[in-house]
Nucleic acid binder design. Structure first.
Length: 911
DNA sequence: CCGTCCCGCCAACTT
DNA sequence: AAGTTGGCGGGACGG
């Protein structure tokens, strides 16, 4: 995705490697990276590269010319040799960090290989050569190869976008630097930006915690809000028109506001005492990054030129806007942009202004999360931010846990603590139930999602793809209690998986999110998550009594966009329930009010905004195209897709009818989705297979049957897609009849025994799609005996994530990078490099397919859920659970991904 | 020639 | 004092 920029560059650069162009995708990038590392090595003493040098930069066989320093280093490093790597590793243990680095470089190749495993890089292969390899030389990377963007991709590839909550992924800067074969300094650049988005947080020296993207949406939301408050939009407009100097007023005013909000923004800092003081950092990349992102989020066009951004940032941060400063700012912005691009949040474009063409970046990340749903959801679920929610504390605890490696139990507690408020107790149960149901329901079938997404929903595909379990409701407790699997707990806040539009599923449990993700076309399973999102396309479950209003909306929403749909319906009801719970129980209580109504409008807005033509700026071709897509969609989408979606069939009462909102959303979604989709496709070609299938399915619009809640359901309403071919709905058994639905809902308890809820076989039966394809089609048996009871329903198979997920590995690291799918433990490792590491996926989301595979492998009850305790933890820890399972399985690596492990190990050793 | 941005010096901060 | 962070900008790369 973002990669585009990179890719473009890469593509452009004929240079070497080109091979890698692909960088766009993680793969290439990774490869490059991998290679790069070796290449990178240049710095490293090794310069083994000399050879490399020969290749590239042609002229300068040596980089050294560039930086003398490197030269010095180089000498140190020996030519690559396997042994050398080992040595390096060993040495790594040694105190000398720098030495480590050198070592690192050495390692890099190895690690790279990991990636390489997945993606053999020609270049990498060479490494074996010891450097002498001319290949290496070739590989020798051009600057591009060394680019921060690639480096960042590599970095990201090491970590699951949606790590199991429990999993505390600590990032050792040294470790990472060494593994990536770069100087630590470079890692700081990356980490600082990631930190700005709360993807990571500093735990201690050289130690960062990897949070993944759970919080991304939330963070973006906040940033957006802040940006709005600060009126960045105005500023941007102002500059765009003038580009000249800033008005003092804006700057100052903004500064103030900005500062005010800054606190909020600085999650990490606030959260982490350890975090260094902000002082210096006011100007830091981190803040700049946040501001930069705000500009995008506030921008109607979603396009920000560097110069404008620099001007705005200068003003705020610094009074003087010297030209030199300006230049410096721009430089920094490039750094930031590279990272953001790697995150697939922006991509480079060119804006043609009156003056001429300017470099600019376009936001391609989630937009819709916009406050609408997200806010609410987030707040609700996570309780996070503003309200005094414990979120931070939780975060802290989490971090702490992560940092400390606290046992999952600890984590759990923390997690639980959050949500768990005294009140909760029963409410929790209820909530959990609801949530569960919601999840289940929420989980749309991939088809639907794909449909919507296919068109546009994809926004977040990256995220979606990654699917990792999104954060569950804030009420982790509820979830936890009943279903530990709920991952979110871990990320109470985070969960905002960036569902496109509003899907925020705060309410929705993981499943929902997963569903959304699934929408993305991938069924993902979080290893940790107990619940697997089953891509059953059409099943929707509405939890809580539906208010007609809500129901409609929800329905409509559903019809609209995947995300929305899911979110809304779930939200509506689940939200209600959740809200109640929250209100009652949780601090989190969000703002129930915010709920649906607000969301809708916002969605509209957003859509509108998006649609809004570019301001003065002229978009590049690409951009223009995109813009077109964006603009056009509304009408299109609304009419067709939406209707389709909404069409209700006889069966049960028809719930929804498309609403304008829906249309609007849809349009938006489509827009975004298109963009993303394409990207995703690229990225996740492998996975895409599945997704593609799904996409194909997308065409199919689900019709929903509204099933009145059975008595036992506690007011839960289910919507089933009428079209759902395979599985007729069977309502049987008392309150909770077993239903044949695309999705299975199973009481957690029931699940425990069963390794897999979601059976591939079933899917095969049901789904037309090949087994390999997403099961979305598959019908699931929906038995919810326990539903009424507190027992949560789980969809999907937690356990499914079999340790063997290794199979999955097919996934490209890219994906990971992009937040795409997190592979199962196995995958994780593969992706990450974990080669060495046993495939233990921590919470990496897995594709259903994978799951299926895994599922094939029966899980032991242990694995399934293991002890309730764990389960609890799991919430966040659902992942953890997975880990536990894995452990049980024999994977030692618990939660930590191989990479992580490595880090830990290394760190520990080093430390 | 110019946009992009790598690289690493070195200062602010921590420990 | 040693180590960690990260601001900063020279200057190379790449087109």
């Amino acid at each position: 995705m973002e990669m585009n920029c990179l890719t473009l560059k890469d593509l452009i650069s004929p240079r070497q490697s080109k091979k890698e162009f692909i960088d766009d995708d993680g793969e290439s990038a990774q490869k490059e990276n991998i290679f790069d590392r070796p290449r990178m090595t240049p710095k490293t003493p090794m310069k083994i590269e000399p050879i490399d040098l020969s290749k590239q930069k042609s002229g300068t066989p040596e980089r050294s010319p560039i930086t003398p320093v490197k030269l010095t280093d180089r000498p140190l490093s020996d030519p690559w040799t396997p042994t050398a790597n080992l040595k390096m590793l060993i040495s790594a243990a040694s105190p000398d960090m720098r030495d480590r680095e050198k070592k690192k470089e050495l390692f890099r190749p190895i690690e790279n290989n990991e990636f390489g495993d997945a993606f053999p890089d020609p270049l990498q292969c060479d490494p074996t050569d010891d450097g002498t390899g001319d290949d290496y030389e070739k590989q020798r990377p051009s600057r591009k190869q060394k680019s921060l963007g690639l480096l960042c991709q590599k970095f990201l590839a090491r970590f699951p976008s949606y790590p199991l909550s429990a999993e505390k992924t600590t990032i050792s800067l040294d470790e990472v630097a060494s593994s990536l074969g770069v100087e630590r300094r470079r890692i700081y650049d990356i980490v600082n930006v990631l930190e700005s988005l709360d993807l990571v947080s500093r735990v201690a020296k050289n130690q960062y915690c990897w949070h993944g993207r759970y919080r991304l949406t939330q963070t973006l939301k906040k940033l957006q809000q802040i940006g709005e408050m600060q009126k960045y939009e105005e500023l941007m407009a102002y500059f765009q028109h003038k580009e000249l100097d800033l008005d003092g007023r804006f700057g100052e005013h903004k500064k103030e506001t900005f500062m005010d909000f800054q606190d909020r923004l600085d999650f990490s800092e606030a959260e982490y005492p350890s975090a260094s003081a902000n002082s210096r950092k006011d100007k830091s990349l981190r803040i700049m990054s946040q501001k930069f992102v705000m500009l995008f989020l506030v921008s109607k066009t979603k396009i920000v030129t560097l110069d404008i951004a620099a001007k705005i940032l200068i003003e705020e941060s610094q009074d003087s806007a010297d030209h030199s400063k300006f230049k410096t700012k721009v430089r920094r912005l490039y750094d930031i942009a590279n990272v953001l691009t790697s995150l697939a949040l922006i991509k480079k474009v060119h804006v043609t202004e009156e003056r001429g063409r300017k470099p600019a970046f376009k936001w391609i990340g989630p937009v819709e999360f916009t406050r609408n749903s997200d806010d609410v959801k987030m707040d609700i679920s996570t309780c996070v931010p503003y309200p005094a929610c414990t979120s931070r504390k939780e975060r802290l605890s989490r971090h702490a846990s992560f940092n400390t490696d606290q046992p999952s139990s600890v984590v759990k507690r923390k997690v639980s603590s959050e949500p768990s408020s005294p009140h909760k107790g029963r409410q929790d149960d209820y909530c959990s139930k609801m949530l569960k149901l919601g999840y289940a329901c929420c989980q749309k079938t991939e088809d639907e999602a794909s449909k919507c997404f296919a068109t546009g929903s994809a926004h977040n595909q990256t995220e979606v793809s990654s699917l990792s379990a999104p954060p569950v409701c804030g009420d982790s407790d509820c979830h936890l209690t009943s279903s530990p699997s709920l991952p979110s707990s871990a990320n109470p806040d985070a969960p905002n998986v960036p569902l496109p539009n509003g899907l925020n599923d705060h309410n929705l449990p993981l499943s929902a999110q997963s569903a959304s993700r699934a929408d993305a076309g991938k069924a993902t399973v979080l290893p940790n998550q107990r619940f697997v999102y089953v891509p059953s396309p059409s099943l929707y479950v509405l939890c809580g009594s539906l208010h007609e209003n809500l129901s409609r909306e929800s329905v409509l929403e559903q019809g609209n966009g995947d995300y929305k749909v899911q979110a809304s319906p779930c939200r509506a009801e689940t939200a209600e329930a959740s809200v109640k719970c929250r209100k009652q129980n949780c601090q989190r209580c969000v703002y129930p009010t915010t709920a649906p109504a607000e969301e809708e409008p916002t969605a509209k807005r957003q859509s509108l905004e998006q649609s809004d033509g570019p301001i003065s700026l002229v978009l590049s071709k690409k951009t223009s195209k995109q813009a077109d897509a964006e603009t056009s969609p509304d009408s299109n989408c609304s009419s067709t897709d939406q209707h389709r979606c909404f069409q209700l069939e006889s069966g049960s009462t028809v719930v929804a009818q498309p609403t304008r909102r829906a249309t609007a959303k849809c349009s938006e979604i489509q827009e975004h989705g298109k963009l993303f989709i394409s990207k995703d496709l690229k990225e996740n070609l492998k996975e895409n297979e599945c997704s593609s299938q799904e996409n194909g399915k997308q065409s199919f619009l689900p019709q929903y049957l509204y099933v009145q809640p059975a008595t036992g359901l506690n007011g839960i309403n289910f919507l089933f897609p009428a079209n759902h071919p395979p599985a007729p709905i069977n309502l049987s058994s008392g309150s909770m009849p077993s239903l044949n639905v695309p999705c299975m809902m199973v009481p957690s308890t029931a699940l425990a025994p069963f390794p897999l809820l979601y059976s591939p076989a079933v899917t095969s039966q049901v789904s037309t799609a090949p087994t390999g394809s997403f099961p979305n089609v598959t019908c699931m048996n929906f038995s919810m005996p326990g539903l009424t009871s507190t027992t949560p329903v789980f969809i999907g198979t937690p356990a499914v994530v079999a340790p063997n997920s290794s199979k999955l590995p097919a996934l490209d690291p890219h994906q990971q990078m992009q937040s795409a799918v997190h592979l199962n433990p196995v995958l994780g490792p593969t992706c990450t490099n974990a080669k060495t590491d046993p495939p233990v996926c921590m919470g990496h989301p897995v594709t259903l397919l994978k799951l299926q595979q895994h599922s094939s492998t029966p899980l032991t009850p242990k694995n399934m859920r293991s002890t309730p305790q764990e389960a609890f933890f799991k919430t966040p820890g659902s992942l953890e659970d997975a880990a536990l399972w894995r452990k049980n399985e024999g994977n030692q690596s618990r939660t930590a991904s191989s990479a992580q492990r490595r880090l830990e190990i290394s760190s520990s050793t080093s430390d």
